[in-house]
Design a protein around this nucleic acid. Structure first.
Lengths: 187, 187, 187, 187
DNA sequence: TATGAATGAGGGTTCATTCAT
DNA sequence: TATGAATGAACCCTCATTCAT
């Protein structure tokens, strides 16, 4: 299934045939259908798995850190930015999570399930941003909602241009994006 | 061709058949092939047209304004943000320009042509940001390159969530995103 | 389409592939789909055509004869028996009309359309029988409905056993069945 | 196996997969193949069983009654009609025996075996009819052979239209068909 | 006896493309 | 310029059957 995700991400979902997936798995087409009922189902599983990764590696970590040792909202937001970027850059998960960023042709009912979880994620970010703004006291002209979408957008866009072997390390990228999000890009 | 773009964007490129396109144009399939040599060509034309729109409506406007009446770099950057967002929101161009955001299955040679123009666009943004930072004098920890990608990412992401008939007007969105980009989201 | 009917009748609908049909027509599978949207549609066309044949060659003839020159009900019934048997035996239509006798896997909505026409046919026979009984005056213990089904059943069954090159000619068969239906088999 | 017959009769033989049969039996596909060597074999068993039912419930009963207590040929023929109709209407056997009426895709060798028994059945009917005609003395214009096929046809056709919960009871149907066969439908 | 993974052939269908008209 | 018939390859999927366990 990881294999399927890789193929889908490389060639595109539509351009990848079940034959391709089966061959990559050294399985016959029929054998593949023993494990998945349809191509859609594979895609849905990948999407679900991608959401799980994101939820576990980002949201759950941020939530847990706050329980074990109370931590300021701002620090939690910084952590979220770092974790989210790490998921996008992570060599083993990138291929899976990146599938979420494009609009793949899922049947409506399954698509909705995924969309709910996407929205939940943005909500979580939004709430965290709202909390940070409240702590800071100062009235911000920026609504948490727009800020959340901006943050998610700029992070999810990374895979479109980032080269892991380039001069910009992941850590540096995290720092840059955190600075941009907290203080703007030209400050 | 605008019609084709709409179909591609609604159903996906692969999921749209030449039959669909021809039918939407009230043309026979054979007739369609008198105007375009292949499906790839249609896609390429759309992508090229999308780049043209972006270049004309954003870059050229910003450049021209500077020629006709010298204008501060910061103001030009603000203008670029507004113009870019307007293109993304524009009812008549949205369907076309949005095609640029996903990785459609173009033959390599054509794909490269589009990518060059995409990069040029980011370069233009990057240079503008650099200029603004220089004018401000203060050393910024943010590289123009990362800033440019962040900006492009958050703007291009808008179509994923923005509802034209929602409570957030286009103007308000422009203001929010400008604020975020210049002063951060929690300032 | 006549070709398809022949194949369906010989090998069975399910056992006949679109490949078979296309090959028999010296057409590619794709070419076949230019004329029919689906295998179901072919089957439906065949069934509809079979109903048309039956209606034209039996019902309409009987109706018309009565108009042009008033004819006793009994004679009309005898004529119906002959015409129906002739359709079942007719070399050129047999393969098509026989398809009606088995329950082929049509989608429910199309199946219903055919069934309505089948019922109309039996109704016509039923009414004719009722008329004959009334003319005879004597109270018959046999309901026109059961009689109609018995008649249709025994005629439609013919194709299961009748050999055109056997000793029993079509005319003789008509006479036999007419006798059976009018006077019983052991009289 | 009764289960398989039900499925075959409801959905059609080709449209019923071994998976369907196995599932209905709460068995795995592999398990099913321990009881039957192939799908064809299941069908053949059903057909054979159907013939056995017919032979036992109709022919043997008629034969035995004649041995235990000599009975007139006409009464035996009336009995045969009743018994045959009862088999066709019997809730528990209908699904099985009905399979005989359509031409299912059996391998030629097995198909032949079934056909021989079908012919034997018709022969039995034919002989019985001949005997009745002889007893009656009067020369009948109807050959026993055609009469037998007519009788078998009209009875086997019953399942195409008969509704068990309709106004026509099985007994009434037996009476109607017996009348038709002995005295014609309009007498 | 029974399972479930696996196969290979084939099914119906779609589709970009060609070409005679 | 436009049509529509035709193609051939590919696609997703199904299925009877096998076999190690």
């Amino acid at each position: 299934m990881r294999t399927a995700a890789r193929l889908f991400q490389q060639r595109g979902y539509d351009a990848t045939s079940m034959n391709d997936v089966a061959a990559a798995l050294k399985l016959s087409k029929g054998g593949l259908y023993h494990h998945f009922q349809s191509k859609d189902e594979i895609l849905f599983h990948i999407m679900s798995h991608a959401m799980e990764i994101t939820e576990e590696r980002v949201i759950n970590v941020v939530r847990r850190i706050d329980i074990s040792r109370p931590v300021g909202a701002e620090e939690r937001l910084r952590m979220l930015i770092r974790l989210h970027i790490e998921v996008v850059l992570s060599p083993e998960d990138r291929e899976i999570t990146v599938m979420l960023h494009e609009n793949h042709p899922l049947p409506p009912s399954l698509r909705r399930k995924i969309n709910v979880r996407k929205k939940d994620y943005v909500h979580f970010v939004e709430n965290l941003i709202a909390e940070v703004q409240k702590r800071r006291g100062a009235q911000s002209p920026v609504t948490p909602r727009a800020a959340a979408f901006a943050l998610v957008g700029m992070i999810n866009w990374i895979y479109q241009w980032y080269k892991p072997d380039g001069s910009l390390t992941g850590d540096a990228l995290v720092k840059q994006y955190t600075d941009i999000f907290f203080h703007g890009a030209v400050g």
